[in-house]
């Protein structure tokens, strides 16, 4: 029997938005998986990027702004059979959800996190996000950071992430490779996807990214954390894209084999006599 296909719906995005390429690429990648749509849960917070799960025929969980990661991790914990993928924005992931970003890396549940990083708050119409460029008096940027710009890849590496990658919505082939590798990676996988916002980000445009992105070459060793940290700190005239770092580490589920075996946690049953014995231990 043919696997039912992942298809897409009409979107509410602006014409020319980088999210279209991400949606199309993700749909293609999902169709390459052996997993049928009803075994995939697409999770989002709130924002333009977070709407992605609304537009693909799979299970969908549109949670709260900033809170997609804890929900996604718990979905995977409840049913280890599901493939859980988060699509959400830079503001959602690194601003409102910053604390969850840090701690879900540490938790290392086997989920995939695609951050549509347009370096701006799109849905609320153009405020700076944590990843917006620093303010530069020469640039007349509407949205820039008075404080330091947040470096998500460097923070992810520092927090112990085991799959850290960057890609660009304008290079669908590269993006597809990154997405497929991230989904395959056991444990938490982060792909920060540079995504032009044509309506509000007039600095980090398609042309801006196109000029700067540079795929990591074969000399980069993704198991070398120091090299990855160096690459993560490069964001200027060249922006490295690719898998900066990947390491095999036990996942959340690997550490608790008694809870995560071939029966999903949600389907487990404790026999009534075991419960009664526990109760009676308080006699």
């Amino acid at each position: 029997m043919n696997k039912p296909a992942f298809t897409t719906y009409d979107t509410a995005w602006c014409p020319g938005c980088g999210n279209y390429a991400i949606l199309e690429t993700l749909t293609g990648v999902l169709n390459q998986l052996a997993t049928p749509p009803h075994q995939v849960v697409l999770v989002g917070g709130i924002g333009q990027a977070a709407k992605t799960n609304q537009y693909i025929t799979a299970n969908g969980f549109s949670g709260l702004h900033g809170r997609s990661l804890p929900a996604a991790a718990a979905i995977k914990i409840a049913n280890n059979d599901l493939t859980v993928i988060v699509n959400t924005g830079d503001g959602d992931s690194y601003g409102e959800g910053g604390n969850h970003f840090l701690h879900n890396i540490r938790r290392n549940v086997d989920i995939t996190h695609f951050v549509h990083d347009n370096q701006i708050y799109g849905l609320t119409k153009g405020q700076p996000s944590p990843t917006s460029d620093p303010c530069d008096p020469l640039h007349k940027a509407a949205a820039c950071n008075m404080g330091a710009t947040f470096n998500p890849l460097l923070v992810a590496l520092a927090a112990g992430a085991t799959f850290v990658a960057r890609s660009f919505s304008g290079d669908k082939k590269h993006l597809a490779d990154m997405m497929a590798a991230a989904i395959k990676h056991p444990g938490y996988a982060l792909v920060d996807i540079l995504q032009p916002c044509v309506s509000f980000n007039k600095i980090n445009t398609f042309a801006y990214y196109k000029q700067r992105v540079k795929p990591l070459d074969d000399r980069h060793d993704p198991t070398n954390k120091l090299a990855a940290i160096e690459k993560a700190m490069e964001f200027g005239d060249t922006i490295p894209i690719g898998i900066l770092y990947q390491q095999a580490t036990p996942t959340y589920a690997d550490k608790r084999p008694e809870l995560f075996d071939n029966i999903p946690l949600a389907d487990k049953h404790v026999p009534q006599n075991a419960i009664e014995t526990l109760i009676k231990s308080y006699i």
């Binding site: 969980f61 949670g63 804890p70 718990a74 914990i77 409840a78």
Partner: peptide, 8 residues
């Protein structure tokens, strides 16, 4: 909430 959605 996520766990409950997934049936736990």
């Amino acid at each position: 909430i996520g766990a409950a959605y997934a049936g736990a």
